[in-house]
C-alpha cells in the first residue's frame, strides 16, 4: 500500500468539469453551424475556422508569454468564444477583421480581466461590438442565403438585408415565419436558423448545462413587450413571433446571455437579468439607431450582473417571510 491520501470531506465528486460544460455548449452549437454552412457555404467555414483558431492561439500566447501561467486552452472556453464570435459575424467578413475581433474578444474581453472566470463582459460580444462599431459597413452587409456555396460565396456575394433592417424600413416585404424559423434569410452566420438554435437549447437544458431561467425570461419579455406594441399599432410594429425569430435573439438568449461567468447566479438574479435583456433588446430594436439590440442589451446587463450577485440572495433555509414576523 502506498502513502494514504488525506483530504477534507467530501471525497466524491459528480465528475462535472469546466471543460465538459464548454464542450457541451460547442456540441449544442453544431446544428446551427450546419445550418450556417448550408446557407452560406464556404464563407461560413472560412470565417468560423479563422475565429476559432485565432481565439485559441491568442489565448495560448497571452497565457504563455504575457501572464506566464500554465495555458489552459483545452478547457474549451476559447474554442467556444471563437465559435460564438463567428456566429455573430457576416460570413463574408474580411479575414483580418475576424482576426482583429478575436484579438479584442480574447485579449480585452477576457484575458485583461485575468482569464476565464474573471471577465465582466461576454468576450465574444466584446469582439463583435468592437467590430460593429469600427467597421459598420462590413458588419452590416450580409450575403444572400443560398446564393453561392463555393468560394464566390465569400469573395463577392450578393447581399441581402436582414429582416430587422427591413422592419425599420416598414413592414412591407418581411420574409415568412417559416423562412425565419429555418434560416432562409439574411443575417450573421449563426443567428439565422432559429430552429437549429432551439434544438441546441433543448440539448443544453437536458444536459443541465444551462437552466431555463435566463432564456425563458428573455424570450417571454420580448414576446410580451412586442405584443403590446404590435397590438397598439400593427402597421408600424412587427408581431411578437417575428421579433422572436429574427436577429440574434435566439442565439443571444440561449447561448450568449447564459454564459456562466457573466450572468447572475441566483434564481431571482437570473430572472431580473433576463427581463432586463428582453426590455433593452426591444427598446433598441424599436427606437435605437441600430436594427439589432441583442449584443448591446447583453453587454449592458453583464455590467449589472455583479450588482445582482451582490444584492439578490438565494432564499435561505428557515428564512421567515416578512409577513410572518
Amino acid at each position: 500500500m502506498n502513502q494514504l491520501i488525506v483530504s477534507p470531506a467530501p471525497h466524491v465528486h459528480n465528475s462535472d468539469s469546466v471543460a465538459k460544460n464548454m464542450y457541451s455548449v460547442v456540441i449544442a452549437l453544431v446544428p446551427a453551424y450546419l445550418a450556417a454552412l448550408y446557407f452560406f457555404g464556404l464563407g461560413a467555414l472560412l470565417v468560423s475556422l479563422t475565429a476559432v483558431v485565432s481565439c485559441v492561439l491568442f489565448e495560448y500566447l497571452i497565457q504563455r508569454f504575457l501572464l506566464k501561467t500554465k495555458p489552459s486552452v483545452w478547457d474549451g472556453s476559447a474554442i467556444l468564444t471563437g465559435l460564438l464570435l463567428a456566429f455573430n459575424l457576416p460570413s463574408n467578413l474580411p479575414i483580418w477583421m475576424v482576426i482583429l475581433g478575436a484579438l479584442v474578444a480574447i485579449g480585452i474581453g477576457k484575458m485583461s480581466f485575468g482569464g476565464l472566470g474573471n471577465n465582466i463582459f461576454n468576450p465574444a460580444l466584446v469582439g463583435r461590438v468592437f467590430l460593429l462599431i469600427s467597421f459598420p459597413t462590413q458588419m452590416t452587409t450580409w450575403p444572400r442565403p443560398l446564393g453561392n456555396w463555393g468560394l464566390a460565396s465569400y469573395i463577392d456575394a450578393e447581399t441581402a438585408a436582414t429582416p430587422l433592417a427591413m422592419m425599420k424600413g416598414g413592414l412591407a416585404e418581411m420574409p415568412s415565419h417559416i423562412d425565419l424559423l429555418l434560416g432562409n434569410t439574411g443575417g450573421s452566420m449563426g443567428e439565422i436558423c432559429a430552429a437549429a438554435l432551439l434544438l441546441g437549447g433543448i440539448f443544453l437544458l437536458c444536459r443541465k448545462v444551462i437552466t431555463w431561467h435566463i432564456p425563458v425570461s428573455i424570450l417571454l419579455t420580448v414576446a410580451l413587450f412586442t405584443a403590446i406594441l404590435h397590438f397598439a399599432n400593427p402597421t408600424v410594429y412587427a408581431s411578437p413571433l417575428t421579433h422572436l425569430l429574427t436577429g440574434g435573439l435566439m442565439l443571444g438568449a440561449i447561448f450568449m446571455a447564459t454564459d456562466y461567468v457573466t450572468s447572475p447566479m441566483t434564481f431571482w438574479g437570473q430572472i431580473i437579468y433576463g427581463v432586463g435583456i428582453g426590455i433593452l433588446t426591444v427598446v433598441i430594436r424599436t427606437w435605437g439607431a441600430y436594427p439589432e439590440g441583442m449584443s448591446f442589451a447583453i453587454l449592458i446587463m453583464n455590467a449589472v450582473t455583479p450588482l445582482l450577485n451582490t444584492y439578490i440572495k438565494p432564499k435561505r433555509f428557515g428564512e421567515k417571510r416578512k409577513k410572518e414576523n
Partner: peptide, 23 residues
Amino acid sequence: LREEPQNCIRCGKCISACPMGLE
C-alpha cells in the same frame, strides 16, 4: 485524488446545490 482546482466560473451550481440556501 481531487482534480486540480480552476478559477471560479460563477456558474452558480454550488448555490443551487446548497441545502441551506447559502452562497
